[in-house]
Design a protein around this nucleic acid. Structure first.
Lengths: 227, 227
DNA sequence: GAGTGGTCTAGACCACACT
DNA sequence: GTGTGGTCTAGACCACTCT
């Protein structure tokens, strides 16, 4: 019996109703005896079942099957170039606009920036087989990443540049729907007022917001995953 | 040194550039000696770093810091009642429409159903503090879940019923934007043509699709998470 | 106080992937 | 073949939390 077998067996008993939601699961010692395994092996199986949201454990109280399984989705966030190339399409990038400016009020409030902070505002397009795929509207905090001021983003996209500057950080991401304004409609080759799919991402490093970006896709775009 | 300390220390070295992206990390034996810990303890720390996308491991080849961080998002998918109640709002549910019918062609194609399969089509509203929050447009495969035919969904929502009836092995979920048709606009109290945020979910058990549901939110709805 | 899970250890064998 | 991670074991001690 490997920990995988034990995990699968326990999960089977949960799913087929042997141990219904809310019921107690035998303790590790008992399961170890039943499966003829070490307690550490049972423990690993159970820890993964906790991770996946099937059971809850408390010291002394023991292990119980969750009433309603807390299912989690895991998304990979690929780089746009990879995403397009993995679809078998040709990737093309274009810088539309680039300007250094004082952070506008809405951005200052959102990113918690001091008054007078300069930001780099970039608007870029990402094409798949020549068709507009993603509109990237990015704001880079120059107080956190001053080297961005002089970098030439006309051939390298800001995301590819940033991941080399700030390798790992804390990210808040959100998905929503929005409507196309006239400029967005022109760039994405749709009509003003059309529904668009939007991903917003805010990246923090050491308590300082590095960048805020709004990634806008045409209405028919789907982000899909399995679990 | 606990495995948490070891993990934190290794992560620190990755973040501060001691072990830059692409570089090799010492093997488990060496790290165990360095930290004065058992190899199993180092192993647990490293396994979590793999889970979190910071390093890659291969037998024989050893452990390397990932070049481009494959960052992953984890979403919890709460039940709608909980989602609303956790916002401190009052939840209300209403069944709008319920009918048994032959699966329409687009659904048959999507769910891979045989011709002549009967499905239950439900349209439901979920309200937060009396305001439309989510429109649920659900299709239940009666070949997989025949007991749904006679259940009364006027007080219990289909999701709450389903999780008690059917275990599920595989879920495909996708996010997109769509436009309100006249009926949706009326139910969600917005205008036809408005942008809406849509979550689609298809649930499979033992190679048979159990249910397909489209969950529609008003434009201002955001799904947010951190990673 | 006592029962349960959380973690660590030292040692072992195995499976894979590279040579 | 050989080096690496993957896993298991038996035993131990600890930390939380319930009574």
């Amino acid at each position: 019996m490997t920990y995988r077998d034990i995990k699968a067996d326990i999960l089977e008993r949960i799913l087929n109703g042997t141990w219904p939601p809310g019921s107690a699961v035998p303790n590790e010692q008992e399961l170890a005896v039943e499966y003829g395994a070490a307690r550490a092996t049972v423990n690993r199986a159970m820890r993964e079942l906790v991770d996946e949201g099937f059971v809850e454990r408390k010291r002394k109280a023991g292990t119980r099957v969750r009433l309603s399984p807390v299912r989690q989705v895991r998304f990979e966030i690929p780089m746009i170039r990879k995403e397009i190339e993995e679809q078998g399409a040709t990737y093309r990038y274009a810088l539309i606009r680039s300007e250094v400016m004082l952070a506008p009020d809405w951005l200052r409030a959102r990113l918690n920036l001091k008054q007078g902070t300069e930001v780099l505002h970039l608007v870029c397009m990402h094409f798949a087989d020549g068709r507009p795929f993603q509109l990237e509207d990015r704001w880079i905090n120059l107080a956190a990443t001053p080297q961005g001021r002089d970098f030439d983003f006309s051939t390298v996209g800001p995301n590819e540049w940033l991941v080399q500057q700030v390798p790992f950080s804390d990210v808040e991401i959100s998905f929503s729907a929005t409507t196309a304004d006239p400029e967005q409609a022109m760039l994405l080759n749709c009509r003003a007022g059309d529904a668009l799919f939007r991903v917003e991402r805010q990246t923090t490093w050491q308590d300082q917001v590095v960048t805020y970006v709004s990634l806008i896709y045409r209405r028919d775009h789907r982000m899909t995953t399995r679990y």
